[in-house]
């Protein structure tokens, strides 16, 4: 085991897969000597060259489509979309093309492609560079959606995503890029579609993913000092969703708080709540299910206002205290 950052974990996953399989290649804007907007791809162009670390024009539709076409021909492109907000520019290629080719061609092709993108706020970049738009992908059959919360998960899940024969949207959390964690020295993967209980407890379940996993763990630690044992379930893969893990946890604890950074209204949390409400866990509920997400507002530039809009430990703690 070694300690590395989340960004390094992503890079190691890409580099190791590119060494292992020559059909894997990497495309995106300024991913060469600039190392990408978040420094993720440091050293990759030097190792793999310009052919496989392919820098693109600022044409998200163009290179996203090129990813789709290359994937259909048996390559395994990793396409970096600099900010997840820019998905709006190439929404068609993801929603109508990548997700539809296999189905509409009667199963005759596969689209083994990974779209890696930086998601989330807290960086002072305002409303067009700060969103969490994962729920917009989750609604589309044909896509898989992954959001890792630790370096260990980031590396293991990205390797699985690259080896997967489908289009996987891999949403990296900007504010987690520099966080550190232990990862094994040897090759490992984490299966897509499997949640991870990041902390066990029997008094209440926090169901979450992404950056709010760390916040939820901090809240759980604090409340543990008061004798409350809180379970934190990191779903990691939003689509396909590990419904069993959610149901099992809530059956055990009887209480649930659903947390994510994305706007609460219409957010993926609603799907988690209905997974609980639509299962046997419903009969074990001792309290209403609570949700914590961002306010229904674009992300403001002002840091005080941004903090107000995004969920933080305080709001998570308040929601937990409200039902525990």
């Amino acid at each position: 085991m070694r300690e590395i950052t989340y960004a390094e974990a992503v890079r190691e996953a890409m580099s190791e897969e590119m060494r292992r399989d020559e059909t894997v290649f990497f495309m995106g804007e300024d991913i060469g000597v600039y190392n990408g907007a978040f420094g993720v791809s440091k050293g990759m162009i030097q190792e793999f060259g310009e052919e496989r670390v392919r820098e693109t024009p600022i044409s998200e539709t163009g290179f996203m489509g090129a990813g789709v076409g290359a994937a259909m021909m048996g390559m395994r492109p990793i396409v970096e979309l600099m900010f997840s907000d820019f998905m709006a520019v190439c929404y068609d290629q993801i929603i109508n093309e990548a997700a539809k080719q296999r189905f509409m061609l009667g199963g005759a092709v596969k689209v083994p492609m990974v779209i890696r993108t930086a998601s989330g706020g807290g960086t002072g970049a305002a409303a067009q560079h700060s969103q969490s738009l994962e729920q917009m992908y989750c609604h589309v059959p044909g896509l898989k959606v992954v959001i890792p919360s630790t370096p260990y998960d980031a590396k293991g899940l990205l390797k699985s995503a690259i080896r997967d024969d489908n289009c996987v949207i891999f949403l990296e959390q900007k504010l987690l890029y520099r966080t550190k964690g232990m990862v094994p020295d040897e090759d490992y993967t984490i299966p897509l579609g499997k949640a991870d209980v990041k902390r066990e407890g029997h008094d209440l379940s926090i169901i979450t993913y992404g950056r709010t996993v760390q916040m939820s763990l901090a809240v759980a630690d604090r409340l543990a000092k008061e004798g409350h044992e809180i379970e934190v379930v990191d779903i990691r893969t939003l689509s396909p969703l590990d419904k069993n893990a959610i149901i099992a946890s809530v059956k055990k604890t009887g209480k649930a708080v659903v947390v994510h950074e994305a706007v609460e209204f219409g957010g993926f949390g609603g799907e988690i709540v209905s997974t609980i409400a639509d299962s046997e866990a419903f009969y074990r509920l001792d309290a209403p299910i609570k949700r914590v997400g961002a306010l229904f507002s674009p992300i403001p530039f002002n840091p005080i206002l941004e903090k107000m809009v995004l969920p933080g430990e305080e709001r998570i703690e308040k929601a937990v205290r409200g039902i525990i």
């Binding site: 496989r52 996203m64 489509g65 076409g69 021909m73 093309e97």
Partner: peptide
């Protein structure tokens, strides 16, 4: 479309096949 004869087409959204064709061309090149 008929993938068996290398005839692709999902042209429900006009123009979007052109970038995908670039990807097919890129795969030939690589």
């Amino acid at each position: 479309a008929d993938v068996g004869v290398n005839a692709l087409c999902i042209d429900g959204v006009l123009g979007q096949n052109c970038p995908i064709a670039c990807g097919v061309g890129l795969s030939f090149k690589m």
